[in-house]
């Protein structure tokens, strides 16, 4: 099950996404991956990390993406490592079996 949680800033989407991830992990004894696509430190807090732990969470580097060119000369962007490797290297495990992965932030001022 792959769930996207969307909404305006301030709507409470992060609180709902994080709490939902934890409850899904607890209810099913599953490992659940929580992806922070919004560079929002609130997701880490909602997942039960302390403020100190949250401050230490780092986002994934852009280098996990790789540009490749196929036989026909088309370029596309793919993962440079397997998802398991990426999660092992950059994921932050929480006490409920949820692993947090923070997407690289976009520098709005410099991004073209």
């Amino acid at each position: 099950m792959k769930i996207a949680v969307a909404g305006k800033g301030g709507s409470g989407k992060t609180t709902i996404a994080g709490t939902l991830a934890r409850l899904m992990a607890q209810q099913n004894g599953n490992e659940v991956l929580a992806i922070d696509g919004d560079s929002n430190p609130n997701l880490a807090l909602t997942l039960g990390l302390s403020r100190e732990q949250t401050a230490q969470v780092t986002s994934m580097p852009r280098s996990v993406l790789q540009r490749v060119t196929d036989i026909e000369g088309k370029t596309k962007v793919v993962l440079a490592k397997s998802p398991d490797e990426i999660i092992r290297e950059f994921g932050v495990k929480t006490s409920d079996g949820v692993t947090l992965l923070v997407m690289p932030g976009v520098d709005h001022a410099g991004a073209g």
Partner: peptide, 19 residues
């Protein structure tokens, strides 16, 4: 990156989307 991770990881996943 979000799309690829969701595609290739085979366990339940929750994505907190950009606002």
């Amino acid at each position: 990156l979000v799309g690829e991770m969701v595609a290739e990881y085979d366990r339940p996943t929750v994505v907190d989307m950009e606002a």
